[in-house]
Computed example of a mutant assay.
Amino acid sequence: MKKQIVTLTAIAALSVGAATSASASSYTVQSGDTLWGISQDKNVSIESLKGWNNLSSDLILPSQELKVDGQATSEKKADSSTYTVKSGDTLAEIASAHGIPLDSLMSWNGISGYMIYPGETLTVKGGTAAAEKAPAKTAAAPAKEKAPAPKTASAPAQKAPAAASAQSGKTMTVSATAYTAYCAGCSGTTATGIDLRSNPNQKVIAVDPSVIPLGSKVWVEGYGEAIAGDTGGAIKGNKIDVFIPTQGAALEFGRKNVTIKVLN
């Protein structure tokens, strides 16, 4: 009888341990929670939380069940070596969701800019970046013969430099303001997939793509050389928004007229 009691106690302890382990991989959103707060509590990045839970914004709701451990997600994705781009996806989010560096994702798929299109098939699993470059280019070749070039992985990389070259060397005066990655409602990720919160020293400007093509390198008076990597609802015509890491410095920047030059 005594042996039976000990056995039942051990089973109960194991059951409790298993339940604790299972619950550690998920979290139920409470009233007042934010993605940033959950990421700090669980010691994971905001982009990882969004990738594991297929979130396209920072909006979360009470009682929502979130995955906070990417191990199970990584195991599920391990047997898939490709990913089909969906509307709203960015390269940074795809790389984070599959646990690979952004530069490796771009290298494996022969992408030199940050533009991707819904319907593209991207390689998200492989060996070294050098080993994966050749298959990526081989896969793009048949697509060129088929005509729907915008659906191939290599098409955006070819189009962006062409658009940028049309403006290369152009100098103009623009109205400049500043913004940060931590404003209300901001995700911290630009329209071209640059994670500004993880790269606070990156020099990026928001532009009107009809004036300055996305992906261009632009010299900005008083700011230096930057990437035209973002857009904004109020950025129309000869206006730019320069990224500055801190809110105080962004407010001090104010609004001013500056000279810019499109480098490529």
Rank of each mutant, 00 (worst) to 15 (best):
A19W: 08
L49A: 06
Q64F: 05
P161H: 04
N53I: 07
A166D: 12
A160Q: 13
I94F: 05
N53S: 06
S15G: 15
A206E: 00
L61T: 12
V29L: 06
V204W: 00
L122C: 05
L49E: 00
S187G: 11
P156I: 04
D89I: 07
L91S: 01
Q71H: 13
E221I: 05
K261C: 09
S216L: 03
K256G: 05
I94C: 06
P156M: 04
A206F: 04
G222H: 03
Q40A: 10
T189G: 11
K239M: 04
T231H: 04
E221F: 04
S57H: 03
V85D: 01
G37N: 12
I116A: 04
L91Y: 01
T259A: 09
T190R: 03
A153D: 02
K50R: 15
I5A: 14
P62R: 02
S210W: 08
E93I: 11
I38K: 02
G185R: 00
P142F: 07
G32N: 01
T128P: 11
K67Q: 12
S21T: 12
T173Q: 11
S198T: 12
P213F: 03
S198Q: 13
G127I: 05
A141W: 07
S15T: 14
F243A: 09
V242A: 02
K67I: 14
